[in-house]
Design a protein around this nucleic acid. Structure first.
Length: 126
DNA sequence: CTTTTGACGCGTA
DNA sequence: CTACGCGCCAAAA
């Protein structure tokens, strides 16, 4: 954070940093927490991450519990490997069970600290 | 100032 | 179950 004004992307990254090891969160969940308006914003924020970032980007998956593909197809495999190293188990269809590995969200205290007044993540509809 | 560019989610058919 | 469309909006060029 070198700039004085925190960008939306930085808010998003701050939440991603809170995801514990061995847990995952969806793009929509992050967006809900920071009130980022759109889940796409979360993906856009992660897209610009440099290598060796302290942000655990691998713990963010899509609403189906799967890894969203990006330009480099190899990165998907790398992400899966990182998660498995943390103890996350993928199903036969290469999906993660949110009931087992889903993140419940940040501590309420942290939310207040950041000025976020949000209800608990309702979870995906389907 | 305008244009381009993206790691998504959900409703509907 | 799959396919398709639309809403979503910041940041860099």
């Amino acid at each position: 954070m070198n700039t004085l004004k925190a960008t939306v992307y930085e808010h998003i990254l701050a939440v991603v940093r809170l995801i514990p090891k061995g847990r995952v969160a969806s793009y929509g969940q992050i967006a809900w927490i920071v009130n980022a308006a759109s889940p796409r914003m979360v993906g856009y924020a992660l897209a610009g991450l440099p290598d060796g970032s302290d942000v655990p980007w691998q713990r963010v998956v899509n609403s189906q519990g799967g890894i969203s593909p990006r330009g480099d197809p190899l990165s998907s495999g790398r992400q899966q490997k990182l998660l498995e190293a943390e103890g996350v188990v993928f199903g036969a269809d290469v999906r993660i069970d949110f009931a087992r590995f889903g993140w419940k969200g940040p501590d309420p205290e942290w939310l207040v600290e950041q000025g976020y007044t949000q209800l608990p993540w309702p979870g995906p509809r389907r």
